[in-house]
Design a binder for these strands. Sequence first.
DNA 1: GCAAAAGTGTTAGAAGTACACCCATGA
DNA 2: TCATGGGTGTACTTCTAACACTTTTGC
Lengths: 237, 237
Amino acid sequence: MESLVNPYVSVDCVLLGFDGEQLNALVVRQSGNNGEDVAGIYKLPGSLINLDENLDEAAQRVLKQFTGLSQVNMLQFKAFGGPDRLKNPEDSVWLVRFYNLNHHIDRIVTIGYTTLLRIDRKMRKLEGGYEAQWMPISELPRLAFDHSAIVDEALKAVRAKATLDVTLLFDLLPNKFTAAQLRNVMEVVLGITLDVKNFHKKLAQMPYVVPLEEKEDGVNHRAARYYKFKKLKNKHI
Amino acid sequence: MESLVNPYVSVDCVLLGFDGEQLNALVVRQSGNNGEDVAGIYKLPGSLINLDENLDEAAQRVLKQFTGLSQVNMLQFKAFGGPDRLKNPEDSVWLVRFYNLNHHIDRIVTIGYTTLLRIDRKMRKLEGGYEAQWMPISELPRLAFDHSAIVDEALKAVRAKATLDVTLLFDLLPNKFTAAQLRNVMEVVLGITLDVKNFHKKLAQMPYVVPLEEKEDGVNHRAARYYKFKKLKNKHI
DNA sequence: GCAAAAGTGTTAGAAGTACACCCATGA
DNA sequence: TCATGGGTGTACTTCTAACACTTTTGC
């Protein structure tokens, strides 16, 4: 009866960061427990789950570890569990070393989490600590395991979700933002282009966006009005 | 370093069956490996994953086992993995017995799959084999583990998906169907009500629905036209 | 004044909403 | 001819797409 699988379970986080221009993903170098470089290729931030935590908590722990952030609610978008996930022997070796295990790991099922983040000054500085760095999603190298596929799925999920609920995109902007900035975020994340006038019409109808009196300063063209995001009562989900 | 969890991984299937009137879920009685009744309460059809299969394949195997169907592509909608999933001792005991394990199971992470099915004559007869039966989702009893929560999540996911892609609902109807039947399915599954006239307008615009010459026969009111579903090239996903 | 980017007016058509009405059939 | 459910006409409103135009600012 022991053809039943008793694999390890991990979470992997596709942290999508917007830097004002484009979408980036946080990737880390695959290094051993004590820092030595093993495979030298990039992977997603992730971790095996601990005894006392549920999946969401494990994802939060990973987020905290790599970015310092907490209380960000992430979207659990898909599980990946094929027996061939560890087919690359280097990946498998890395796992055993990194987690100081005394046996080979046959299989890992991983749960994918993702969220959209704003890359601010603090976030930029993180690069280094865990050898983590932001890379534009358009320039991502091949990642370890099936992490490239995981990124693709995360993007699909995030785009679908943000299309239904634009408010998710407000986490990508500073507190005060201009209409052009918001439009740019929508265009980049959703992969669409928007007519300027029609966008303003929609903007005026968004109850959760309030125009401020304040305007840009010191630009060599007409100053743009600032807006801010107002949280509403009935957030769905 | 062994606070890392090495749980079992299962798939659980929320099979939603439409019987012409309402939505039902397939539930099975929790019984031991050799048939004796253990807890007497219902659970979702599911299984631990095997060594040589990936998650999708495990879900297909469960579907086949309980309904005889194959080649139905199911939606993987969420993973459930809290350490408290087995907090009910009866559930835990059942697992060990059913799978003939020689040790206690601390934890199971389960991957939820769901799909919409039509309950036809063949499907009705299944009730018995694995003590499986269709129950209206509005009348489901408390299920084992966290299976009640899993059903709720499945419904949410299916409704969201079917709202975006109505063609998923065609699997719930016979080859030939009337406009009223399709409307009813949409109302029941999506939990909405539709204006008759406006529904006909939309129907006329659906390229994948073709009206037939044939009409109902022997009804004591105006006979309804039949329609059929035509598969198109670019199915998304 | 000029370049640069912000922001506006107006239109035509498509799509969604509402509701009153007519049609075919068996009993 | 009546009850029953199938199916239609039409008016109104709201979104969508398109595109030419005006405004403000620093140099």
